[in-house]
Computed example of a mutant assay.
Amino acid sequence: MLKFLILVGLIIWLYHSPAVKKLLGKQARPSAKPHTQETEQMLRCAHCDVHLPASEAHRDGEGRPYCSKEHLASGPGH
């Protein structure tokens, strides 16, 4: 029984061994997910201070960002 357990342990150890994976041509999985998206700047609505992505902002003539057309029409809220 002990010989069987030692054999199973050896097989498991070899299966997870980097040297054996290299011999078999298996690639190790990357530890982290690769970054696939650019980080977008966040802006604060000039009316309500809600944060929103720069690509979704509505801007007035002075370039101030707003979260919606309603807030753009209302103007700065401060």
Rank of each mutant, 00 (worst) to 15 (best):
M1H: 13
M1W: 13
M1E: 14
M1Q: 10
K3N: 13
K3R: 15
L5K: 05
L5R: 09
L5N: 04
L7R: 13
L7N: 11
V8F: 11
G9N: 09
G9C: 06
L10N: 00
L10E: 01
L10V: 00
L10T: 03
I11K: 07
I12M: 13
I12T: 12
L14M: 12
Y15D: 03
H16V: 00
S17L: 13
P18V: 04
P18K: 08
P18A: 03
V20L: 11
V20Q: 07
V20M: 10
V20E: 04
V20F: 12
V20K: 10
K21A: 01
K21L: 02
L23H: 10
L24H: 05
L24Y: 08
L24S: 01
L24W: 10
G25E: 11
G25C: 07
G25D: 14
G25K: 05
K26I: 05
K26P: 05
Q27K: 10
R29H: 09
R29T: 14
R29Q: 14
P30C: 06
P30T: 02
P30L: 10
P30N: 04
S31H: 14
S31P: 08
S31D: 15
S31K: 13
A32M: 14
A32Q: 14
K33Y: 11
K33W: 12
P34V: 08
H35P: 06
H35F: 14
H35S: 03
H35R: 12
T36G: 09
Q37D: 00
Q37K: 15
Q37F: 11
E38K: 01
E38I: 04
E38V: 08
T39E: 15
T39I: 10
T39M: 08
T39A: 13
E40L: 02
Q41N: 00
Q41K: 01
Q41I: 04
R44M: 09
R44A: 09
C45N: 00
A46W: 12
H47N: 10
C48M: 01
D49L: 07
D49G: 07
V50P: 07
V50C: 03
H51L: 07
H51A: 12
H51N: 11
H51P: 05
L52Y: 01
P53I: 01
A54S: 07
S55H: 00
S55F: 04
S55E: 06
S55T: 02
S55P: 04
E56T: 01
E56P: 00
E56W: 10
E56R: 00
A57T: 05
H58Q: 09
R59C: 03
R59N: 08
D60C: 02
D60S: 05
G61H: 13
E62I: 06
E62L: 06
E62A: 02
E62V: 02
E62C: 01
G63A: 01
R64L: 09
P65A: 01
P65C: 00
P65S: 02
Y66Q: 02
C67G: 00
C67D: 08
C67V: 05
C67M: 07
S68A: 05
S68I: 03
K69N: 13
K69V: 09
E70Y: 13
E70C: 04
E70D: 13
H71R: 07
L72Y: 06
A73E: 15
A73P: 08
S74F: 13
S74P: 08
S74V: 12
G75K: 10
P76N: 12
P76T: 11
G77S: 05
G77W: 15
G77N: 06
G77E: 09
G77I: 00
